[in-house]
Nucleic acid binder design. Structure first.
Length: 722
DNA sequence: GTGCCTCGAGTTCC
DNA sequence: CTCGAGGCAC
């Protein structure tokens, strides 16, 4: 639909288009072009970083972006607030503002059969010390297959809507949420602050209609209602969201200034009274038998509900008991999702391949003839390890009835947790006669890799010293990943390109920080390459420069030492305080003995395995040299030393007991120590303070007997000003 | 020594 | 998201 005289879109003639000189454009024409380019570049960003195939060549993309930047410089007033020129390599997740949840959005533990539901009930009773006789009351409600959303109301007015994200931080989709009819804009008589949580979803009929419309308009269709709902909510243009038939069921809450009710069921009633849709199939159930009856009822009505559900959620009804039960790190103890059996599909396993991970782990993957499972086309499935292929678990117990997996087999595929494709069964009657059992060792030899499987472990690993390109690249990817150096504009694609580059290679972390220097010496400069203009090259160098100064914990995590993840890196950084101290300790800690080794093991949360992994890494000459080259380039900030001045707990002896909900024990301890407190394991007359979470037992009693001050976790966090 | 609880690592598809 | 394994409490 191009109007006469309208210039063709630049992407139609590749990068070689000719524009009117920027200076000669009148503001009207400039505005039209800026608007158009903003959209095109943004779309290209999405396509590039998101699910679709890139729509533009790198050169064409660069040209578009450069043109937009020029126009914006010439006509700054016309620059749009959503301009993509501000960011290098913007990902879709960066197109919405981040929102940190005041109360984390957790996930649920899953159960698949009645036995697991009984265990759930038993665990709760044991935790609460309940009599065997009496049944607990639960609620049961369908688990909607959509995406969760948190709605924040202040003085009864909707002020913010946020997606779940990783549970800690989500995306601000307020404008989009306001277009959903099921979401009230105001709640008369609501508490001063109320966060309502629930699920956004799309009905079956509406999903069909939407896809039909998409097809008519030549747009891409959605694989299933959940993807359609997610795609519709995460539109930058709220106008598009408004045109999509989205619904919302409320089933939970986050922060609130006063409790809604005494029970889960009562709270849902309150939410319904505020004008929210709550699921009509929600039931109050006394005991597990009633829960299973509710499950059967939902399962029976599943096909006629008109929207997707993937199970039934059970929650302890009493909110007082919920509070006593509290949380594990990622899930509440008082709720569980009883999932429907996963959808299954048969297909042919064409090939078994071996992948190499960042740590040298060798994992087998099944290449499958593409098959639709649960609304998604699957063509790969994890095979975990050697034993899994052979049909036995690590203890030698048969899995899949002891059937092994061979190339050419007919296999039954499902998506574990509705995500990860796995193989459920093998049809031995259809096994080709020439199918041979998969032999890991033989296969590795064929690939020219030396591997070994340590005694007692289930994973094959590369023998020491081999670093094939895949591993080097994965290590670099880890190095620049989010919790590590997090360098903007240096993602997997760029890493792969630089790794293969002959004039300006990045083969180890230190190379990243020498890149700009080497570039300056080079004749073939980065800014002259495909995909890089002067601006993008400059941005990349700046992003790298910005990360030269970095916290100790990030550096330690970035090294990618086995068993040392984000958490352990934090512990180590807090303990050693500086790169010099850490580095010195690692190279002076002998093989399993000596003061430096003992000091390392004394860190709460560090055991012999992790310690050996750390010390072993620094004992390898090549590894150590590479790490030291990196350190030369960096300005590593010291970790905060224990502060004793002005700390409310300095010099006090603190004991943590019961379950901590907002932090792990190791974290709590490290933090207390950073504030100058001493953390002890048991309560004695010398104890100054006991921090007791739910489930506190003998230690709390003893503290009471000794008359020692006892506070809960929240009070502790307030005390230390967290 | 056993049994929980976390963390680390690997994995897939969008 | 799930598995395996490390770390620690009992």
């Amino acid at each position: 639909m191009s109007a006469p005289g309208e210039r063709e879109s630049p992407k139609d003639n590749g990068g070689a288009f000719v524009d009117s000189p920027v200076a000669s454009l009148d503001p009207g024409a400039a505005k039209a072009e800026i608007d158009r380019l903003t959209v095109e570049v943004t779309q290209a960003n999405h396509a590039y970083h998101g699910e679709d195939a890139p729509v533009l060549s790198d050169a064409a993309y660069d040209a578009l972006k450069r043109r937009l930047a020029e126009l914006e410089t010439r006509f700054p007033d016309l620059k749009r607030s959503d301009s993509p020129t501000e960011r290098v390599g913007a990902t879709p997740s960066e197109t919405f503002d981040k929102v940190s949840h005041r109360v984390r959005m957790l996930s649920l533990e899953n159960a698949f059969d009645a036995g697991e539901i009984d265990e759930f009930d038993t665990r709760i009773r044991r935790f609460l010390n309940l009599d065997a006789g009496e049944d607990l009351t639960y609620t049961a409600e369908p688990k909607i297959d959509g995406l969760s959303l948190s709605l924040r109301y202040v003085e009864g007015v909707l002020v913010q809507a946020a997606t779940r994200g990783d549970g800690e931080t989500g995306e601000n989709v307020t404008a989009n949420a306001r277009t959903i009819r099921d979401i009230p804009k105001s709640l008369p008589g609501a508490p001063a602050v109320l966060e309502v949580r629930g699920e956004v979803y799309m009905g079956h009929d509406e999903f069909q209609d939407l896809n039909a419309r998409q097809t008519r308009e030549g747009l891409k269709t959605f694989a299933n209602p959940r993807n359609a709902a997610a795609g519709s909510l995460r539109q930058l243009d709220a106008g598009i969201t408004a045109a999509r038939p989205l619904h919302f069921f409320a089933y939970a809450w986050g922060e609130m200034s006063e409790p809604l009710a005494d029970t889960q069921f009562g709270a849902l009633d309150r939410l319904a009274a505020f004008g929210f849709q709550t699921n009509p199939m929600t039931r109050e159930c006394k005991g597990t038998v009633a829960l299973l009856a509710a499950y059967a009822e939902v399962e029976q009505k599943r096909a006629t509900l008109g929207y997707d559900i993937d199970g039934v959620v059970y929650k302890v009804n009493s909110l007082a008991l919920q509070q006593r039960l509290g949380f594990r790190s990622t899930t509440p103890r008082w709720a569980i999702a009883h999932k429907f059996p996963a959808e299954l599909a048969w297909t042919r396993l064409e090939k078994i391949e071996i992948q190499v991970g960042r740590t040298g782990a060798l994992s087998p993957v099944a290449r499958l003839a593409p098959v639709t499972v649960g609304g998604v086309v699957v063509s790969n499935a994890t095979l975990h390890n050697e034993d899994y292929i052979a049909g036995r678990d690590a203890k030698g117990n048969p899995i899949r009835g002891g059937k092994d997996i061979r190339e050419g087999d007919w296999v039954q595929v499902y998506r574990a947790g509705d995500v990860i494709p796995k193989i459920a069964d093998v049809d031995l009657s259809k096994r080709p006669e020439d199918a041979r059992a998969f032999d890991f060792a033989t296969e590795l030899a064929r690939l020219g890799l030396r591997g070994l499987r340590p005694e007692g472990e289930s994973v094959w690993r590369l023998a020491e010293g081999q670093i094939p390109p895949e591993v080097a690249i994965e290590r670099l990817n880890h190095f620049v990943s989010r919790g590590a150096f997090d360098i903007e504009g240096l993602g997997p694609r760029q890493i792969e390109m630089f790794y293969a580059d002959d004039t300006l290679p990045i083969r180890e972390p230190a190379d990243i920080f020498t890149l700009a220097r080497r570039d300056a010496r080079n004749l073939s400069r980065l800014k002259n390459r495909d995909g890089f203009g002067e601006r993008s090259a400059g941005n990349l160098f700046q992003a790298i420069e910005d990360r030269r100064k970095i916290s100790l914990n990030r550096v330690i995590f970035a090294l990618g030492i086995r068993h040392v993840g984000e958490n352990a890196a934090n512990l180590l950084a807090r303990h050693y305080g500086s790169w010099t101290a850490f580095h010195h300790a690692m190279i002076s800690a002998g093989a399993g003995e000596g003061p430096a080794w003992d000091d390392l093991l004394a860190i709460d949360g560090v055991g012999a395995v992790m310690a050996a992994s750390l010390v072993g890494t620094f004992a390898q000459a090549a590894e150590r040299a590479s790490i030291e080259r990196l350190a030369e380039e960096l300005d590593v900030e010291d970790s905060r030393r224990p502060m004793t001045e002005g700390s409310p707990v300095a010099g006090k002896t603190v004991v943590f007991t019961g379950t901590l909900e907002k932090m792990t024990r190791a974290e709590a301890k490290a933090r207390a120590e950073a504030l100058g407190a001493k953390v002890a394991g048991s309560v004695s007359a010398k104890t100054d303070l006991v921090v007791a979470g739910p489930g506190a037992g003998s230690k709390a009693k003893q503290a009471e007997a000794l008359g020692i001050e006892m506070i809960d976790e929240d009070a502790w966090l307030r005390l230390i000003g967290a």
